[in-house]
Design a binder for these strands. Structure first.
Lengths: 227, 227
DNA sequence: CAGTGTGAAGGGGTTCACAGCG
DNA sequence: CGCTGTGAACCCCTTCACACTG
Protein backbone atom coordinates (compact mmCIF):
# COMPACT_ATOMS: atom_id res chain seq x y z
CA UNK A 1 0.00 0.00 0.00
CA UNK A 2 2.10 2.97 1.18
CA UNK A 3 5.85 2.76 1.86
CA UNK A 4 7.64 3.90 -1.26
CA UNK A 5 11.01 3.03 0.23
CA UNK A 6 11.55 0.60 3.03
CA UNK A 7 14.23 2.68 4.69
CA UNK A 8 12.30 5.17 6.76
CA UNK A 9 14.22 6.78 9.60
CA UNK A 10 12.82 6.02 13.01
CA UNK A 11 12.97 9.73 13.79
CA UNK A 12 10.57 10.29 10.92
CA UNK A 13 7.99 8.01 12.54
CA UNK A 14 8.32 9.90 15.81
CA UNK A 15 7.74 13.17 14.02
CA UNK A 16 4.74 11.72 12.15
CA UNK A 17 3.03 11.41 15.49
CA UNK A 18 3.84 15.03 16.28
CA UNK A 19 2.61 16.23 12.91
CA UNK A 20 -0.65 14.45 13.50
CA UNK A 21 -1.02 16.13 16.87
CA UNK A 22 -0.31 19.56 15.40
CA UNK A 23 -2.79 18.95 12.61
CA UNK A 24 -5.44 17.94 15.11
CA UNK A 25 -5.02 21.27 16.88
CA UNK A 26 -5.17 23.17 13.60
CA UNK A 27 -8.28 21.24 12.62
CA UNK A 28 -9.95 22.15 15.92
CA UNK A 29 -9.09 25.80 15.27
CA UNK A 30 -10.80 25.60 11.91
CA UNK A 31 -7.62 25.95 9.84
CA UNK A 32 -8.08 24.36 6.43
CA UNK A 33 -4.62 24.57 4.87
CA UNK A 34 -1.02 24.57 6.09
CA UNK A 35 2.37 24.84 4.49
CA UNK A 36 5.33 22.73 5.51
CA UNK A 37 6.83 25.94 6.86
CA UNK A 38 3.88 26.52 9.20
CA UNK A 39 3.92 22.94 10.45
CA UNK A 40 7.64 23.25 11.12
CA UNK A 41 7.12 26.36 13.21
CA UNK A 42 4.49 24.66 15.37
CA UNK A 43 6.95 21.98 16.48
CA UNK A 44 10.71 22.36 16.39
CA UNK A 45 11.69 21.51 12.88
CA UNK A 46 12.44 22.67 9.41
CA UNK A 47 10.12 22.88 6.43
CA UNK A 48 12.39 20.66 4.36
CA UNK A 49 12.24 17.95 6.96
CA UNK A 50 8.46 18.08 7.15
CA UNK A 51 8.21 17.69 3.39
CA UNK A 52 10.75 14.89 3.25
CA UNK A 53 9.07 13.01 6.10
CA UNK A 54 5.66 13.22 4.48
CA UNK A 55 7.03 12.29 1.06
CA UNK A 56 7.99 8.83 2.35
CA UNK A 57 4.29 8.00 2.47
CA UNK A 58 2.78 9.74 -0.52
CA UNK A 59 2.17 13.06 -2.22
CA UNK A 60 -0.22 14.64 0.24
CA UNK A 61 0.32 18.28 -0.70
CA UNK A 62 -0.61 20.59 -3.55
CA UNK A 63 2.22 22.59 -5.09
CA UNK A 64 1.86 26.28 -4.60
CA UNK A 65 -0.87 25.73 -2.00
CA UNK A 66 0.22 23.44 0.83
CA UNK A 67 -1.52 20.61 2.65
CA UNK A 68 -5.18 20.07 3.42
CA UNK A 69 -5.26 19.91 7.21
CA UNK A 70 -7.88 17.28 7.83
CA UNK A 71 -6.97 15.24 4.77
CA UNK A 72 -3.33 15.06 5.76
CA UNK A 73 -4.22 14.17 9.32
CA UNK A 74 -6.46 11.33 8.15
CA UNK A 75 -3.60 10.01 6.03
CA UNK A 76 -1.12 10.21 8.88
CA UNK A 77 -3.50 8.49 11.28
CA UNK A 78 -3.84 5.70 8.75
CA UNK A 79 -0.08 5.44 8.29
CA UNK A 80 0.29 5.21 12.08
CA UNK A 81 -2.38 2.54 12.23
CA UNK A 82 -4.63 4.63 14.45
CA UNK A 83 -7.73 4.26 12.31
CA UNK A 84 -8.31 0.69 13.43
CA UNK A 85 -8.23 0.76 17.25
CA UNK A 86 -5.35 -0.71 19.23
CA UNK A 87 -6.03 -2.85 22.29
CA UNK A 88 -3.73 -2.51 25.27
CA UNK A 89 -3.16 -4.43 28.48
CA UNK A 90 -1.13 -3.22 31.43
CA UNK A 91 0.94 -5.46 33.66
CA UNK A 92 1.72 -3.93 37.01
CA UNK A 93 -0.85 -2.30 39.26
CA UNK A 94 1.64 -0.10 41.08
CA UNK A 95 1.69 3.66 40.76
CA UNK A 96 2.72 3.70 37.11
CA UNK A 97 0.32 1.00 35.98
CA UNK A 98 -2.62 2.50 37.84
CA UNK A 99 -1.91 6.04 36.58
CA UNK A 100 -1.85 4.73 33.07
CA UNK A 101 -5.02 2.71 33.47
CA UNK A 102 -6.84 5.73 34.85
CA UNK A 103 -5.67 8.05 32.08
CA UNK A 104 -8.28 8.25 29.35
CA UNK A 105 -6.40 10.57 26.99
CA UNK A 106 -5.17 7.80 24.73
CA UNK A 107 -8.66 6.72 23.74
CA UNK A 108 -9.02 9.77 21.55
CA UNK A 109 -6.06 8.41 19.58
CA UNK A 110 -7.43 4.92 19.16
CA UNK A 111 -5.95 3.07 22.11
CA UNK A 112 -8.24 1.07 24.37
CA UNK A 113 -6.96 -0.17 27.69
CA UNK A 114 -8.76 -3.42 28.31
CA UNK A 115 -7.13 -4.98 31.35
CA UNK A 116 -4.67 -4.63 34.19
CA UNK A 117 -2.65 -7.45 35.71
CA UNK A 118 -0.18 -7.88 38.53
CA UNK A 119 2.39 -10.42 39.62
CA UNK A 120 1.69 -9.84 43.30
CA UNK A 121 -1.25 -11.85 44.57
CA UNK A 122 -2.11 -9.21 47.15
CA UNK A 123 -3.06 -6.79 44.39
CA UNK A 124 -5.16 -9.22 42.37
CA UNK A 125 -8.87 -8.48 42.75
CA UNK A 126 -8.31 -4.79 43.54
CA UNK A 127 -10.12 -2.10 41.58
CA UNK A 128 -8.46 0.42 39.26
CA UNK A 129 -11.20 2.64 37.90
CA UNK A 130 -13.56 0.32 36.06
CA UNK A 131 -11.07 -2.52 35.90
CA UNK A 132 -10.35 -5.32 38.33
CA UNK A 133 -6.71 -6.34 38.72
CA UNK A 134 -6.23 -9.81 37.29
CA UNK A 135 -3.66 -12.51 37.97
CA UNK A 136 -0.83 -13.32 35.59
CA UNK A 137 -2.33 -16.76 35.09
CA UNK A 138 -5.21 -15.17 33.24
CA UNK A 139 -3.10 -13.12 30.86
CA UNK A 140 -2.60 -15.67 28.12
CA UNK A 141 -6.31 -16.28 27.61
CA UNK A 142 -7.11 -12.60 28.01
CA UNK A 143 -4.70 -11.47 25.29
CA UNK A 144 -6.01 -14.03 22.85
CA UNK A 145 -9.66 -13.47 23.69
CA UNK A 146 -9.57 -9.66 23.52
CA UNK A 147 -7.01 -9.36 20.72
CA UNK A 148 -4.61 -7.34 22.85
CA UNK A 149 -1.90 -5.96 20.56
CA UNK A 150 0.18 -3.87 22.90
CA UNK A 151 1.53 -4.84 26.30
CA UNK A 152 2.63 -2.32 28.90
CA UNK A 153 5.31 -3.52 31.31
CA UNK A 154 5.02 -1.54 34.53
CA UNK A 155 6.54 -3.93 37.04
CA UNK A 156 9.82 -3.78 39.00
CA UNK A 157 12.95 -4.44 36.94
CA UNK A 158 13.31 -7.90 38.43
CA UNK A 159 10.07 -9.17 36.88
CA UNK A 160 10.21 -7.21 33.63
CA UNK A 161 11.78 -9.82 31.36
CA UNK A 162 9.53 -12.55 32.67
CA UNK A 163 6.43 -10.42 32.14
CA UNK A 164 7.62 -9.49 28.65
CA UNK A 165 8.04 -13.15 27.80
CA UNK A 166 4.52 -13.91 28.98
CA UNK A 167 3.06 -11.07 26.95
CA UNK A 168 4.93 -12.03 23.80
CA UNK A 169 4.00 -15.68 24.15
CA UNK A 170 0.38 -14.69 24.65
CA UNK A 171 0.50 -12.86 21.35
CA UNK A 172 0.96 -9.12 21.83
CA UNK A 173 2.67 -7.38 18.92
CA UNK A 174 4.55 -4.63 20.76
CA UNK A 175 5.72 -3.61 24.22
CA UNK A 176 5.95 -0.37 26.12
CA UNK A 177 8.38 -0.88 28.98
CA UNK A 178 8.67 1.27 32.10
CA UNK A 179 11.19 -0.97 33.87
CA UNK A 180 14.83 0.12 33.75
CA UNK A 181 16.12 -2.94 31.92
CA UNK A 182 16.61 -3.64 28.25
CA UNK A 183 14.26 -6.44 27.27
CA UNK A 184 15.31 -9.37 25.15
CA UNK A 185 12.71 -9.77 22.40
CA UNK A 186 12.53 -11.49 19.01
CA UNK A 187 14.36 -9.72 16.19
CA UNK A 188 12.29 -6.82 14.86
CA UNK A 189 9.76 -6.95 17.69
CA UNK A 190 8.71 -3.36 18.45
CA UNK A 191 9.60 -2.13 21.96
CA UNK A 192 9.79 1.36 23.41
CA UNK A 193 11.23 2.39 26.73
CA UNK A 194 10.16 4.98 29.26
CA UNK A 195 13.18 5.40 31.47
CA UNK A 196 13.08 8.44 33.70
CA UNK A 197 16.45 7.74 35.29
CA UNK A 198 18.17 7.95 31.94
CA UNK A 199 16.39 11.18 31.05
CA UNK A 200 17.18 12.79 34.38
CA UNK A 201 20.79 11.69 34.25
CA UNK A 202 21.28 13.08 30.76
CA UNK A 203 19.78 16.35 31.99
CA UNK A 204 22.23 16.25 34.86
CA UNK A 205 25.09 15.82 32.41
CA UNK A 206 24.07 18.79 30.30
CA UNK A 207 23.59 20.92 33.40
CA UNK A 208 27.17 20.05 34.26
CA UNK A 209 28.31 21.24 30.84
CA UNK A 210 26.53 24.55 31.31
CA UNK A 211 28.00 24.96 34.78
CA UNK A 212 31.45 24.38 33.35
CA UNK A 213 30.91 26.94 30.62
CA UNK A 214 29.90 29.47 33.23
CA UNK A 215 33.01 28.83 35.26
CA UNK A 216 35.10 29.35 32.14
CA UNK A 217 33.28 32.57 31.37
CA UNK A 218 33.85 33.74 34.91
CA UNK A 219 37.55 32.89 34.70
CA UNK A 220 37.95 34.81 31.47
CA UNK A 221 36.16 37.77 32.97
CA UNK A 222 38.39 37.94 36.06
CA UNK A 223 41.50 37.53 33.92
CA UNK A 224 40.40 40.37 31.72
CA UNK A 225 39.63 42.62 34.67
CA UNK A 226 43.06 41.81 36.12
CA UNK A 227 44.82 43.38 33.16
CA UNK B 1 38.45 18.84 33.34
CA UNK B 2 37.14 16.00 31.17
CA UNK B 3 35.68 16.47 27.67
CA UNK B 4 38.46 15.79 25.22
CA UNK B 5 36.25 16.81 22.30
CA UNK B 6 33.21 19.02 22.50
CA UNK B 7 31.27 16.98 19.97
CA UNK B 8 29.82 14.17 22.00
CA UNK B 9 26.80 12.44 20.50
CA UNK B 10 23.68 12.75 22.58
CA UNK B 11 23.18 9.00 22.19
CA UNK B 12 26.50 8.52 23.96
CA UNK B 13 25.23 10.41 27.01
CA UNK B 14 22.13 8.27 27.11
CA UNK B 15 24.26 5.14 27.00
CA UNK B 16 26.53 6.49 29.72
CA UNK B 17 23.59 6.33 32.07
CA UNK B 18 22.93 2.75 31.05
CA UNK B 19 26.59 1.77 31.51
CA UNK B 20 26.48 3.20 34.99
CA UNK B 21 23.39 1.19 35.81
CA UNK B 22 24.96 -2.00 34.48
CA UNK B 23 28.12 -1.36 36.46
CA UNK B 24 26.11 -0.82 39.61
CA UNK B 25 24.55 -4.23 39.20
CA UNK B 26 27.94 -5.85 38.53
CA UNK B 27 29.34 -4.10 41.58
CA UNK B 28 26.52 -5.46 43.74
CA UNK B 29 27.27 -8.95 42.40
CA UNK B 30 30.87 -8.56 43.47
CA UNK B 31 32.31 -8.47 39.95
CA UNK B 32 35.62 -6.60 39.92
CA UNK B 33 36.50 -6.36 36.22
CA UNK B 34 34.59 -6.18 32.94
CA UNK B 35 35.54 -5.99 29.29
CA UNK B 36 33.80 -3.74 26.79
CA UNK B 37 32.44 -6.92 25.24
CA UNK B 38 30.77 -7.97 28.49
CA UNK B 39 29.25 -4.54 29.07
CA UNK B 40 27.91 -4.59 25.52
CA UNK B 41 26.21 -7.92 26.11
CA UNK B 42 24.47 -6.66 29.25
CA UNK B 43 22.71 -3.91 27.35
CA UNK B 44 22.07 -3.97 23.61
CA UNK B 45 25.26 -2.70 22.09
CA UNK B 46 28.61 -3.45 20.58
CA UNK B 47 31.99 -3.57 22.26
CA UNK B 48 33.39 -0.95 19.90
CA UNK B 49 30.65 1.46 20.81
CA UNK B 50 31.21 0.98 24.52
CA UNK B 51 34.89 1.73 24.11
CA UNK B 52 34.31 4.74 21.89
CA UNK B 53 31.71 6.17 24.26
CA UNK B 54 33.97 5.82 27.27
CA UNK B 55 36.98 7.20 25.40
CA UNK B 56 35.26 10.59 25.08
CA UNK B 57 35.79 11.09 28.79
CA UNK B 58 39.14 9.51 29.54
CA UNK B 59 41.17 6.32 29.47
CA UNK B 60 39.37 4.32 32.10
CA UNK B 61 40.49 0.86 31.04
CA UNK B 62 43.62 -1.22 31.18
CA UNK B 63 44.75 -2.80 27.93
CA UNK B 64 44.68 -6.55 27.99
CA UNK B 65 42.59 -6.50 31.16
CA UNK B 66 39.44 -4.43 30.87
CA UNK B 67 37.74 -1.95 33.20
CA UNK B 68 37.65 -1.80 36.97
CA UNK B 69 33.94 -2.02 37.76
CA UNK B 70 33.63 0.31 40.71
CA UNK B 71 36.29 2.70 39.47
CA UNK B 72 34.62 3.10 36.11
CA UNK B 73 31.24 3.57 37.73
CA UNK B 74 32.57 6.30 39.99
CA UNK B 75 34.00 8.06 36.95
CA UNK B 76 30.76 7.80 35.02
CA UNK B 77 28.74 9.10 37.96
CA UNK B 78 31.05 12.06 38.12
CA UNK B 79 30.76 12.70 34.38
CA UNK B 80 26.98 12.59 34.73
CA UNK B 81 27.13 15.00 37.65
CA UNK B 82 25.55 12.52 40.04
CA UNK B 83 28.22 12.86 42.72
CA UNK B 84 26.94 16.23 43.84
CA UNK B 85 23.20 15.83 44.45
CA UNK B 86 20.60 17.35 42.14
CA UNK B 87 17.58 19.13 43.58
CA UNK B 88 14.24 18.69 41.85
CA UNK B 89 10.82 20.33 42.08
CA UNK B 90 7.65 19.02 40.50
CA UNK B 91 4.90 21.18 39.10
CA UNK B 92 1.58 19.43 38.79
CA UNK B 93 0.02 17.37 41.56
CA UNK B 94 -2.08 15.23 39.27
CA UNK B 95 -1.46 11.53 38.78
CA UNK B 96 1.90 11.91 37.10
CA UNK B 97 3.26 14.51 39.51
CA UNK B 98 2.12 12.61 42.59
CA UNK B 99 3.50 9.29 41.30
CA UNK B 100 6.81 10.91 40.73
CA UNK B 101 6.87 12.64 44.10
CA UNK B 102 6.12 9.37 45.85
CA UNK B 103 8.78 7.42 43.98
CA UNK B 104 11.96 7.27 45.98
CA UNK B 105 14.10 5.34 43.50
CA UNK B 106 15.87 8.40 42.15
CA UNK B 107 17.41 9.29 45.47
CA UNK B 108 19.86 6.44 45.13
CA UNK B 109 21.11 8.20 41.99
CA UNK B 110 21.52 11.60 43.60
CA UNK B 111 18.19 13.27 42.88
CA UNK B 112 16.27 14.86 45.75
CA UNK B 113 12.68 15.87 45.21
CA UNK B 114 12.15 18.90 47.41
CA UNK B 115 8.74 20.28 46.53
CA UNK B 116 5.51 19.86 44.61
CA UNK B 117 3.42 22.68 43.19
CA UNK B 118 0.14 23.04 41.32
CA UNK B 119 -1.59 25.67 39.25
CA UNK B 120 -5.02 24.67 40.56
CA UNK B 121 -5.86 26.31 43.87
CA UNK B 122 -8.02 23.37 44.92
CA UNK B 123 -4.94 21.16 45.10
CA UNK B 124 -2.76 23.60 47.03
CA UNK B 125 -2.38 22.52 50.65
CA UNK B 126 -2.96 18.84 49.90
CA UNK B 127 -0.47 16.20 51.06
CA UNK B 128 1.69 14.06 48.76
CA UNK B 129 3.71 11.78 50.97
CA UNK B 130 5.78 14.05 53.17
CA UNK B 131 5.23 17.10 50.99
CA UNK B 132 2.49 19.71 50.98
CA UNK B 133 1.34 20.96 47.60
CA UNK B 134 2.37 24.60 47.20
CA UNK B 135 0.98 27.40 45.10
CA UNK B 136 2.73 28.66 41.95
CA UNK B 137 3.24 32.01 43.67
CA UNK B 138 5.72 30.37 45.98
CA UNK B 139 7.80 28.73 43.29
CA UNK B 140 10.18 31.56 42.54
CA UNK B 141 11.35 31.93 46.14
CA UNK B 142 11.40 28.18 46.63
CA UNK B 143 13.68 27.50 43.66
CA UNK B 144 16.13 30.17 44.75
CA UNK B 145 16.07 29.26 48.41
CA UNK B 146 16.51 25.50 47.95
CA UNK B 147 18.77 25.66 44.89
CA UNK B 148 16.39 23.64 42.73
CA UNK B 149 18.23 22.72 39.54
CA UNK B 150 15.69 20.58 37.72
CA UNK B 151 12.02 21.33 37.12
CA UNK B 152 9.47 18.67 36.26
CA UNK B 153 6.51 19.84 34.21
CA UNK B 154 3.56 17.54 34.89
CA UNK B 155 0.62 19.80 34.11
CA UNK B 156 -1.90 19.72 31.24
CA UNK B 157 -0.56 20.83 27.86
CA UNK B 158 -2.35 24.15 28.11
CA UNK B 159 -0.29 25.29 31.12
CA UNK B 160 3.01 23.66 30.20
CA UNK B 161 4.71 26.60 28.49
CA UNK B 162 3.65 29.02 31.21
CA UNK B 163 4.93 26.71 33.92
CA UNK B 164 8.19 26.20 32.03
CA UNK B 165 8.65 29.97 31.81
CA UNK B 166 8.11 30.32 35.57
CA UNK B 167 10.61 27.57 36.33
CA UNK B 168 13.27 28.98 34.02
CA UNK B 169 12.79 32.48 35.34
CA UNK B 170 13.08 31.18 38.89
CA UNK B 171 16.45 29.68 37.98
CA UNK B 172 16.16 25.96 37.26
CA UNK B 173 18.84 24.64 34.90
CA UNK B 174 16.89 21.90 33.12
CA UNK B 175 13.37 20.65 32.52
CA UNK B 176 11.71 17.26 32.32
CA UNK B 177 8.42 17.70 30.51
CA UNK B 178 5.48 15.29 30.59
CA UNK B 179 3.09 17.53 28.68
CA UNK B 180 2.59 16.76 24.99
CA UNK B 181 3.88 20.08 23.69
CA UNK B 182 7.32 21.16 22.60
CA UNK B 183 8.51 23.84 25.00
CA UNK B 184 10.15 27.05 23.87
CA UNK B 185 13.30 27.51 25.94
CA UNK B 186 16.53 29.52 25.65
CA UNK B 187 19.08 28.17 23.18
CA UNK B 188 21.01 25.26 24.68
CA UNK B 189 18.72 24.91 27.69
CA UNK B 190 18.44 21.19 28.51
CA UNK B 191 14.95 19.70 28.17
CA UNK B 192 13.76 16.12 27.91
CA UNK B 193 10.32 14.90 27.01
CA UNK B 194 8.25 11.99 28.26
CA UNK B 195 5.55 11.61 25.68
CA UNK B 196 3.63 8.36 25.89
CA UNK B 197 1.36 9.16 22.95
CA UNK B 198 4.33 9.42 20.64
CA UNK B 199 5.80 6.16 21.90
CA UNK B 200 2.52 4.31 21.59
CA UNK B 201 1.87 5.68 18.13
CA UNK B 202 5.30 4.68 16.86
CA UNK B 203 4.65 1.21 18.25
CA UNK B 204 1.36 1.21 16.40
CA UNK B 205 3.19 2.11 13.19
CA UNK B 206 5.68 -0.72 13.51
CA UNK B 207 2.91 -3.17 14.34
CA UNK B 208 1.32 -2.10 11.07
CA UNK B 209 4.55 -2.85 9.21
CA UNK B 210 4.70 -6.32 10.73
CA UNK B 211 1.05 -6.94 9.89
CA UNK B 212 1.75 -5.96 6.30
CA UNK B 213 4.74 -8.28 6.08
CA UNK B 214 2.59 -11.12 7.29
CA UNK B 215 -0.05 -10.41 4.67
CA UNK B 216 2.64 -10.44 2.00
CA UNK B 217 4.02 -13.72 3.31
CA UNK B 218 0.52 -15.18 3.28
CA UNK B 219 -0.05 -14.00 -0.29
CA UNK B 220 3.19 -15.51 -1.46
CA UNK B 221 2.31 -18.78 0.22
CA UNK B 222 -1.12 -19.02 -1.43
CA UNK B 223 0.34 -18.09 -4.81
CA UNK B 224 2.94 -20.80 -4.46
CA UNK B 225 0.40 -23.40 -3.42
CA UNK B 226 -1.77 -22.40 -6.39
CA UNK B 227 0.89 -23.50 -8.85
C1' DC C 1 4.42 32.81 -8.12
C1' DA C 2 4.20 30.09 -4.09
C1' DG C 3 5.05 25.91 -2.05
C1' DT C 4 5.70 20.87 -2.86
C1' DG C 5 8.66 16.92 -4.02
C1' DT C 6 13.33 15.28 -4.52
C1' DG C 7 18.26 14.31 -6.07
C1' DA C 8 22.59 15.76 -4.30
C1' DA C 9 25.58 17.49 -0.77
C1' DG C 10 26.71 17.66 3.89
C1' DG C 11 27.26 16.21 8.66
C1' DG C 12 27.04 13.24 12.55
C1' DG C 13 27.21 8.74 14.60
C1' DT C 14 28.43 3.92 14.28
C1' DT C 15 31.33 0.22 12.80
C1' DC C 16 35.68 -1.51 11.37
C1' DA C 17 40.24 -2.73 11.82
C1' DC C 18 44.38 -2.33 13.81
C1' DA C 19 48.01 -0.02 16.35
C1' DG C 20 49.40 0.31 21.08
C1' DC C 21 50.16 -1.22 25.55
C1' DG C 22 49.98 -3.91 29.90
C1' DC D 1 48.56 -12.61 24.01
C1' DG D 2 44.29 -9.92 25.18
C1' DC D 3 41.74 -5.97 25.31
C1' DT D 4 41.77 -1.04 25.08
C1' DG D 5 41.93 3.27 22.44
C1' DT D 6 41.33 5.43 17.93
C1' DG D 7 41.77 7.07 12.98
C1' DA D 8 39.37 5.88 8.85
C1' DA D 9 35.55 3.99 6.35
C1' DC D 10 30.98 3.56 6.23
C1' DC D 11 26.19 4.54 6.61
C1' DC D 12 22.20 6.96 7.60
C1' DC D 13 19.74 11.15 8.44
C1' DT D 14 19.30 15.99 7.66
C1' DT D 15 19.83 20.07 4.97
C1' DC D 16 20.21 22.37 0.70
C1' DA D 17 18.82 23.87 -3.64
C1' DC D 18 16.07 23.65 -7.37
C1' DA D 19 13.07 21.55 -10.77
C1' DC D 20 8.27 21.03 -11.06
C1' DT D 21 3.42 22.05 -10.87
C1' DG D 22 -1.18 23.98 -9.67
Amino acid sequence: MFLKANKIPEATITRLSVYSRVLQILEKNGTLRVSSEEIAQLMDGTAAQVRKDLAYFGEFGTRGIGYDVSGLNKNLMKVLGLNKGRNVAIVGAGRVGRSLALYSGFEKRGFRNLGIFDVEHSRVGGQVGELTVMSMNEIDDFVKEHNVQMGVVAVPAFYAQEVANCLIKAGVRSLLNFAPVSLVVPLGFPVRYVDLSILMETLSFYMGIEEQKEIERANRATKRSAI
